[in-house]
Amino acid sequence: MADREEFLAHIRSALASGPCIGAPPSASPPAATPSPPSRDDLLAQLERSAGLQSWHFVRAANADEATARVVEIAKGHGAGTVVRTAHDVLQRMGIDAALAGAGMESVVLADGPGGLDAEQRQATAAGAAVGVTGVDAVIAETASVALAPRKGMSRQASLLPPVHVAVAMADQVVGTLDDVLALRLVELAEAEEITWYMNLVSGPSRTADIEQTLVVGVHGPGVVYLVVIEE
């Protein structure tokens, strides 16, 4: 068994550079976008790239319209149970009541009094037709939704159901991946806990492993909606 020191010493001898003292010179980070694009430009770019990435893109003027659209989507997929995360935006939309009004059950995948245990949460998520989540950011260039699971934000809501609906506020849209990573670094600098997980979701689950023919929904959701609330 090699311990760290032994392993690193072997690398040093391969490099024949002796022990490395202190941080080596840092290469420059990727160049920042010259001027931040306007909100309208970002949304227009997002709409284009969302189409290319096979998102169903929905612009909603306000939270009420978004709620109506989400209910419509869930209904369209014949959902009995919808699982969701505890993102604020979904609470504000009053999503549970709206879904209940349309005859669907809405389950928050979170620990809490009277809630489901871990096993039940997984089983519910796996059985649900639709998963609804908020987002942490959206990248306009690649139509990527950043999801950082934490308390109340289950990893499973966007993963196990065959349909995923991501709801974003227009001011969460940024230009590039570098913007998201830079934001992440700022958050990390202030965070108490350095443990984190993040997914960038850029469209449906896809594969082309048989005869290079595209199939969606092989493991993750095969149908994905991105709802952007513009107000």
């Binding site: 949460r121 690649t142 991946l177 984190w196 997980y197 960038l200 469209g203 993750g220």
Partner: peptide, 18 residues
């Protein structure tokens, strides 16, 4: 342009994660 999923894993689940 990008793959469907890019996952960033830093350690196991967070202390308060679901």
């Amino acid at each position: 342009r990008i793959s469907s999923y890019v996952s960033f894993v830093t350690g196991p689940r967070r202390s308060d994660e679901e």
